[in-house]
């Protein structure tokens, strides 16, 4: 099943073997996605925008602008361009510079963070960025990591201050109008984090009367305002601040992205992730929309990264950085393509 539904289902199958309804959804997506990919789906943008595939030949000559995000829906958002090892203009530009400039995070433990002992950036995202650089520039690739705050991710890509952003960045349609994404390299979702001994079991009525912390302006806050389950919402400037509140007894549970929740659990052995993710958030590598050849190249790297079953580079990085706090993920999400 060549849809992102599979990665999602794999994750859920292990974390909580339920999700029968999701399987139905995934099956529906499997039918709908190819239809959309041909630009003839019911959510098609209209005749002017034309079929997506028409724009996508990264042939010689001027780099063509990739389409904004025609026909993008939450279900098809993770679909990207088919992989290619060809050296297009963007790849050649990076070769000429001799270095790959990657926008990363430096505050998220196990994903992208600065080890205060060494001063070096480390994490799952950082490993992936290095793999991409090695593929484009060879084994001694020079990578320049630029710490990009959350609000600067899209401007940095659009203004080409970085070649790409690898920074726990969720793929969605609004962002696809501004930047291009690779295929999904990690499947996450909003999840509840609470002390191990807490009566909170998941994002359900066990939250009733509890103080639940979430980052101001985050997806978690939106979800909690949609269905609070009787919880009192406490907001903090940043998701990690919620762990501080939790440790100081100012909150009883945290709602955040599962990957970030895992990063929190990794810093406090007394807390754990509860239940299963209750939203879908796929992470992708963000690139400039005018660099379709680079998107294809990165998708090729991701293909290689995923290949090899249990010994794939993806699984090695997963075991190194994430498994302790996000156990039971059997493999990377399957790629989805729009062309």
């Amino acid at each position: 099943m060549g849809t992102r539904g599979r990665g999602l289902r794999d994750l859920r199958a292990v974390l909580a073997p339920v999700a029968a309804g999701m399987a139905v959804m995934a099956a529906a997506a499997a039918v709908l996605v190819p239809a959309l990919g041909r630009g003839s789906g019911p959510w098609g943008p209209g005749a002017d925008a034309g079929p997506v595939a028409a724009h996508r030949t990264a042939g010689p000559g001027l780099p063509q602008a990739a389409p904004a995000a025609p026909g993008c829906t939450p279900r098809t958002a993770a679909a990207s361009l088919r992989p290619s090892a060809a050296d297009g203009p963007a790849v050649q530009r990076i070769r000429r510079k001799g270095q790959l400039v990657v926008g990363v995070d430096q505050n998220t433990y196990r994903w992208g963070y600065r080890d205060p002992g060494t001063g070096r950036l480390e994490g799952f995202d950082i490993d992936l960025a290095r793999a991409i650089a090695r593929d484009i520039l060879g084994p001694d690739a020079k990578v320049v990591f630029q710490a990009v705050p959350t609000n600067q991710r899209i401007p940095a890509v659009r203004q080409r201050t970085v070649d790409m952003v690898v920074r726990t960045m969720t793929i969605n349609c609004a962002r696809k109008e501004q930047v291009a994404f690779s295929t999904a390299y990690f499947q996450a979702g909003q999840q509840v984090l609470a002390p191990k001994a807490s009566p909170v079991t998941a994002f359900d009525d066990s939250l009733r009367g509890k103080r639940v912390c979430t980052a101001a302006g985050s997806t978690g806050e939106a979800e909690l305002s949609r269905r609070s389950h009787g919880a009192r919402v406490v907001t903090a400037p940043n998701q990690l601040d919620c762990l501080v509140r939790l440790q100081l007894g100012e909150a009883d549970a945290v709602v955040t992205d599962s990957a970030l929740a895992a990063a929190q659990a990794a810093q406090d052995p007394a807390v754990e992730l509860k239940g299963t993710p209750f939203t879908d958030e796929a992470y992708g590598v963000a690139m400039n929309q005018d660099d379709p050849d680079l998107v294809r190249r990165v998708n090729k790297v991701l293909d290689d990264y995923r290949r090899g079953g249990d010994d794939s580079a993806w699984m090695r990085a997963y075991r190194k950085w994430l498994r302790a706090d996000l156990p039971g993920i059997p493999g990377p999400p399957a790629p989805e393509y729009s062309d």
Binding site: Y109, P116, P237, L240, D241, V244, Q264, Q267
Partner: peptide, 20 residues
């Protein structure tokens, strides 16, 4: 002090404590 302890262990949580 909590911020410093976390920072010594290499945890970004230290920064969050310091900001708090």
């Amino acid at each position: 002090e909590t911020a410093k302890t976390n920072n010594r262990q290499g945890l970004p949580l230290g920064g969050a404590y310091l900001r708090y």
